[in-house]
Design a protein around this nucleic acid. Structure first.
Length: 851
RNA sequence: GCGGGUGUGGCGGAACAGGUAGACGCGCGGGUCUCAAAAACCCGUUCCUUUCCAGGAGUGUCGGUUCGAUCCCGACCACCCGCACCA
């Protein structure tokens, strides 16, 4: 028998798919549509196994759905703007466009080499003018609708990448790419008004049952809705009062001070005449934003000499502070301090010797003895020292306080959100230009898209190459014709990826989004990507979808009906004694009993085996799919990354694992290359044929259900089992058995097709089937063959398994009891015992309670 | 600190819906084939006791509910993830 050679077989079938244009999607079809999408890649240079796993998962679903009769759209594109291209330009002097295009060519070939069933005619590249020009068009539409604005504000400045980052891109005080400590800087920047959609983004999560709860919870927490009271305290000697936000209006009588953010407008007013206050504000601004610094940062403040009157009782007077822990852009940028019931306020009060007045009595506490020392009471209780609120519970007191504030005209019920507007300005040359022209006379005016990037940017120095370009920004104002300048900020690349799924629906459309295509294909039925985008890309995309819907560009509320977040591919790490990282190919292993020792292949020098970690260039534990394909074939690699762990979990890449998958490929091929072969038949051939048919149909059921539940590892396990059964089935000299084998092989070829598509085609053609297995219908199972006529029921005595009986499927309690009590083994076990109770779970188990 | 998750053999993991724990793969042990090795194939493989037959324990720990718990409830331990001065 000729050994299966994936290196010969696989390219042949990829060529056949190409020749047949096998994965082209067309909008006009009677079939139900199914839009399968994986997060598109950044063209970094080479594909790694993590990409392969992500796209293999999507391909399994897409191929299965296609076979099940859906009109499937499965496109691919490139998230092509971004910093690595600028870094390459800076280091090697290459044009980022050329560098990116070369990477795309390489990676397109590598992706294609994975045997993915993709409609390449729809390929999108975000750095192409036909894409980013249309992005500029909708950007301007949102601008006209007031959803885009420019303001001066404190921004997260990444000093290494020399650009601004959005809040979502700052992880533990560091830039999400550079890892540099973020500084706060004040500069004008462009924002998208995502906060306008806070409520809908929150409520919409409930319409996404096929999203992981974890992601929905993370978005919910990120949006951070709280209900409370906005209330104004009159200031002595001033016309305007000071407005604060609180979620604890019940504790208003416990107030002992007011505090405003150092960035609050009132702070600037008082600083103008008081150098000490100005100095304090400056000091606050210098403060770092790293986790450690915030943790240790002392609560500090300065009394600004103003006096506020309590809205409920003007005789109560409160000092006003500027405090470093009050945030400008949450609530009103100002708070009232209630030290007894808020830990921060308590710390502040102790430092500045302010009164601590308990107003909530914990349940069971003695009002005469209760007092707050170093720990604020934030739990439930009964109001005290609070005039009209006395005796109420916290929740009812909140309502009563809000009612009183409203009737006094001092405040009202409001909602506050933690979500901030999305800062989209980036000081980068390799990005989508913001299509705005600044004119001294007319202000910011629209530049008509596409606003193209110049090709002669200088990336040799850090910072914004676009800004440095000698002529690009110099234009005349489209309104008045006077001298004007282009905006030199470009858009955050998360804007590029926030609508690409809609462009895939009709990438040829002249409009920004082709309506007919979008109406047909959207929303994406199944989206797959990494959990790291839980609040970045996935929140931005939801917002942009809603904003574009309201602008009339598309007609869906949510972009992704189903979401699956897949785990990473990890690999062991290896280093020499001196700490130098080693590539897996440089290391060889020696078995020592149950354990394993690693040595350097070249010298035999001992190697330290480290934890399995996410593949990264710095740790040199990256495995390239192309290298594996050359040895084991792509099908084996796909089978392995899908089989060894559940898809939402990380999978550890191991050579032994791929070898196991490769064995499966060869066994399957063995079954097809000698389709009639098997051990001699021992019993009744008709019975053997029936047993084989049962196994085939059970496999169809199990694999289908596993794929639909995203349990690819279980699906592959069932295929393993089925192949073992098929190999053990008797030789097909008998007519019925021959037919059963033929059916089994036909089923096997089709159920492996989503996982190992090349092998499946080769098997399908070996069977003599016409056409591609990629276009063959998914096998259906006969329920009668899946059901077992006779069941084996374990028999327990007092919960311990003591034997088993055979009973017809669906046998009644009394029928089962009959069988049990006639069983001699069970009878022997029951000697000397009295039966107290018999529990029969039909088709499942029997439990005898005896003493 | 707040919120969420996970914990099963030597390893990755399986177990519908409270009903035979450990499917399938890896590794390991034994065997067939071979002059030999590799490959391939076959058998075995939770732990303890036991020649056999068999018995006992067992899903992070302790307790509870139940005829029966990996699954439900309570407390705890460990690890992972998200947020983090959000008033």
């Amino acid at each position: 028998m000729k050994r299966y050679d994936p290196r010969e077989v696989e390219p042949r079938w990829r060529a056949a798919w190409k020749a047949a244009d096998a994965f082209r999607a067309d909008a006009g079809s009677d079939k139900p549509k199914y839009y399968m999408l994986e997060m598109f890649p950044y063209p970094s240079g080479r594909l790694h196994v993590g990409h392969a796993r992500n796209y293999a998962m999507g391909d399994v679903i897409a191929r299965c759905k296609r076979a099940q009769g859906y009109n499937v759209l499965h496109p691919m594109g490139w998230d092509a703007f971004g910093l690595p291209a600028e870094n390459a330009a800076a280091e090697r002097g290459v044009d980022p466009a050329v560098w990116t295009e070369e990477n795309i060519s390489t990676m397109r070939a590598e992706l294609d080499g994975l045997g993915l069933g993709i409609d390449w005619s729809r390929e999108i590249t975000t750095c192409a003018p036909e894409y980013y020009g249309r992005q500029q068009s909708w950007f301007l539409q949102l601008w006209r609708r007031g959803l885009v604005y420019r303001r001066d504000g404190l921004v997260n400045w990444d000093p290494v990448d020399m650009t601004v980052l959005a809040n979502e891109q700052v992880i533990e005080g560091r830039g999400w790419r550079s890892g540099a400590l973020i500084e706060r800087r004040r500069r004008p920047q462009w924002f998208m008004r995502i906060t306008d959609y806070a409520e809908e983004l929150l409520a919409g999560l409930r319409s996404l049952p096929r999203w992981p709860d974890k992601v929905k919870l993370m978005q919910e927490n990120w949006i951070g809705k709280s209900a409370g009271l906005r209330i104004t305290f009159p200031l002595r000697g001033r016309d305007e009062g000071l407005t604060v936000f609180t979620t604890r209006p019940d504790t208003l009588f416990g107030a002992s001070f007011l505090a405003i953010s150092p960035e609050h407008p009132l702070a600037a007013v008082v600083a103008a005449t008081d150098p000490a206050i100005a100095a304090f504000i400056a000091e606050c601004r210098r403060g770092g934003v790293s986790e450690a610094e915030i943790e240790q940062a002392e609560k500090k403040g300065v009394d600004i000499g103003l006096t506020a009157a309590h809205p409920f009782d003007p005789s109560i007077e409160l000092p006003v502070y500027i405090a470093n822990f009050v945030l400008l852009d949450y609530g009103e940028g100002a708070i009232f301090g209630c030290p007894a019931h808020d830990q921060r306020d308590l710390d502040f009060a102790r430092k500045y010797d302010l009164p601590v007045r308990p107003v909530v009595l914990p349940p069971g506490a003695d009002p005469a003895l209760f007092h707050v020392e170093q720990e604020a009471w934030t739990g439930p209780g009964t109001l005290m020292n609070s005039e009209f609120l006395d005796g109420l519970q916290v929740e009812t007191a909140k309502e009563a306080a809000i009612d009183r504030a409203r009737s006094l005209g001092a405040g009202e019920r409001v909602l506050a959100y933690r979500l901030r507007d999305w800062g989209v300005s980036r000081q980068r040359g390799w990005g989508c230009p913001i299509p705005i022209i600044h004119c001294q006379a007319c202000g910011p005016v629209e530049a008509s898209p596409p606003v193209l990037l110049p090709r002669d940017l200088d990336f040799s120095r850090p910072g914004n190459a676009l800004e440095r370009h000698p002529t690009w920004k110099l234009v005349t104002c489209p309104e008045c014709g006077g001298k004007a300048e282009r905006e030199t900020d470009t858009l955050d690349t998360f804007v590029d990826s926030a609508w690409y799924f809609a462009r895939f629906a009709d990438p040829w459309a002249a409009e920004t989004i082709g309506r007919a295509g979008a109406d047909y294909w959207l929303p994406v039925d199944q989206y797959i990507g990494g959990i790291e985008h839980a609040v970045l890309h996935l929140l931005y995309s939801r917002f942009v979808t809603k904003a574009l819907r309201d602008a009339g560009l598309m007609d869906v509320d949510e972009p992704f009906a189903g979401l699956f977040t897949q785990g990473m591919v990890t690999h062991e790490t290896y280093r020499r004694q001196n700490g130098e990282w080693l590539e897996p190919s440089e290391v060889t292993f020696r078995q020592e009993g149950a354990g394993r020792r690693a040595v350097l292949r070249a010298t035999g020098e001992p190697v330290i085996i480290g934890e399995a970690e996410k593949m990264s260039k710095s740790k040199r534990n990256v495995v390239a799919p192309a290298d594996i394909a050359g040895v084991y074939g792509v099908d084996a690699a796909r089978l392995f990354v899908l089989s060894d762990s559940p898809p939402e979990r990380d999978v550890q890449w191991t050579t032994a694992g791929v070898e196991g998958a490769s064995r499966l490929v060869n066994r399957i091929w063995g079954a097809f290359s000698q389709p009639a072969a098997g051990p001699p038949i021992e019993g009744d051939p008709a019975k053997e044929a029936l047993a084989l048919r049962r196994s085939s149909h059970r496999t169809v059921k199990a694999v289908t259900e596993a794929i639909e539940a995203f349990r690819f590892n279980s699906a592959v396990a069932r295929i393993h089992e089925f192949v073992a059964v098929l190999r053990g089935a008797g030789e097909a000299s008998h007519r019925e058995l021959a037919a059963a084998r033929r059916e089994a092989l036909s089923i096997l070829a089709r159920v492996i097709a989503p996982f190992a598509p090349h092998l499946a085609e080769e098997c399908w053609s070996k069977l003599g089937e016409a056409g591609l297995v990629a276009h063959a219908p998914w096998p259906e199972f006969d329920p009668a063959l899946v059901e077992e006529a006779e069941r084996v029921l374990p028999v327990q005595i007092n919960g311990k398994r003591r034997g088993e009986i055979k009973a017809p499927a669906g046998a009644s309690q009394s029928a089962v009891e009959d069988i049990v009590f006639r069983d001699p083994e069970i009878a022997r076990r029951l000697e000397g015992l009295t039966i107290k109770k018999v529990i029969v779970v039909p088709d499942r188990i029997v439990n005898l309670v005896a003493a």
